[in-house]
């Protein structure tokens, strides 16, 4: 849910009524507490009012789940659901705290309140990262790919690199048998590799066809270099590699360029670019987890809150 100036009208349409409702309920609570000379509990009429509204909000928040399951019916646009979810969810916490009379009570109400706090906090965290990280990724991760395709694309990159090297400097003597068995590694006049292109402020990876030269004297050096970086290209930061860090990679490729012929420089450019891509994939993986792992936590906490809420309502009415 993006909260931006362009969506001000949408959010104010929910935020203002919810804020007014919350303010009215809390005013009634504080007024009764002032009259009673203490923080009245959830059994007081004003505390009960706050509790009932908070409970109703929690249940309505959970309607997002069936709404998603029934999305083919197009029940009100998602942006309205999300705006309502956001602002009503935020209001539920102060109402619940007021309902508690500012003390945790026994295990059940304490657990319920703590879970609700964690739920709201996880939601606020999610709101924050959803408004920050996607923009950051768009700017800083131009080679971003689909999260669960990272490994697939990485394997392709290794294949591309191997093919490029074969075209550039002939087969790797050490793996000649493997090369013969792999028809993709047969010599040819051109290979397809990835490259980053920029349009305006947005950058992204495109595929390019490159013509390569025949084998040269620095074949062994290049193949040896490839053997060193191949585990990194496949596994990323899960393995130790000289090109794992950006600074170390620059130094390592600089030495490789010095050891190779001038005509091999484009090949080295491609290898270095693939390493950069793998580094971005690793970063994307971490950022993607920051961006999405909160949601299962949020849902799990919400489920627990809803179940405990039902028990709390039953026991509270019985032992009012």
């Amino acid at each position: 849910m993006i909260v931006s100036r362009g969506q001000l009208k949408l959010h104010l349409g929910f935020a203002i009524p919810v804020a007014v409702l919350t303010a009215v309920c809390m005013t009634l609570y504080f007024r009764q507490s002032l009259a009673a000379g203490t923080w009245v509990g959830g059994g007081s009429w004003s505390g009960l009012l706050c509790g009932v509204i908070a409970g109703a909000i929690i249940l309505s928040e959970m309607l997002l789940w069936p709404r998603k399951a029934l999305r083919r019916f197009r029940l009100i646009p998602t942006k309205y659901w999300m705006a309502a979810h956001l602002w009503m969810g935020l209001a539920s916490l102060p109402l619940a705290i007021v309902h508690c009379g500012f003390h945790l009570g026994g295990w059940l109400p304490a657990t319920l309140l703590i879970l609700l706090v964690l739920t709201v906090l996880s939601g606020v965290y999610g709101l924050a990262v959803q408004n920050v990280l996607p923009r950051w990724m768009l700017r800083h991760l131009p080679r971003e790919t689909i999260y669960n395709q990272i490994q697939f694309v990485s394997d392709q990159a290794v294949r591309d690199a191997r093919q490029l090297l074969t075209r550039a400097c002939g087969r790797n003597v050490a793996s000649i048998e493997t090369a013969v068995a792999d028809p993709e590694l047969l010599p040819a006049g051109a290979v397809v590799v990835g490259a980053v292109r920029q349009a305006g402020k947005t950058r992204g990876k495109t595929l390019q066809t490159r013509h390569v030269a025949e084998g040269r004297f620095d074949r062994e050096t290049l193949w040896s270099a490839f053997d060193q970086i191949e585990p990194y290209l496949r596994e990323g930061d899960r393995v130790e590699s000289p090109v794992r860090q950006s600074y170390g990679a620059d130094r390592w490729f600089r030495r490789l360029r010095e050891a190779c012929h001038e005509e091999s420089q484009p090949v080295i450019d491609v290898l270095q670019d693939l390493c950069d891509q793998r580094r971005e994939f690793d970063l994307q993986r971490r950022v993607h987890r920051l961006l999405h792992t909160w949601l299962p936590v949020h849902i799990g906490l919400s489920v627990a809150v809803t179940i405990l809420l039902g028990i709390h309502v039953w026991t509270a009415l019985k032992f009012w």
Binding site: N148, L207, P296
Partner: peptide, 25 residues
């Protein structure tokens, strides 16, 4: 270069979602 049925594949996040919801229940 992108698997056409990539969205059907379960990744670590979908497993994490299952763990969270099932754990809460």
């Amino acid at each position: 270069r992108i698997q056409i049925d990539y969205y059907r594949k379960r990744d670590d996040l979908s497993r994490w979602r299952f763990v969270c919801i099932a754990g809460a229940l």
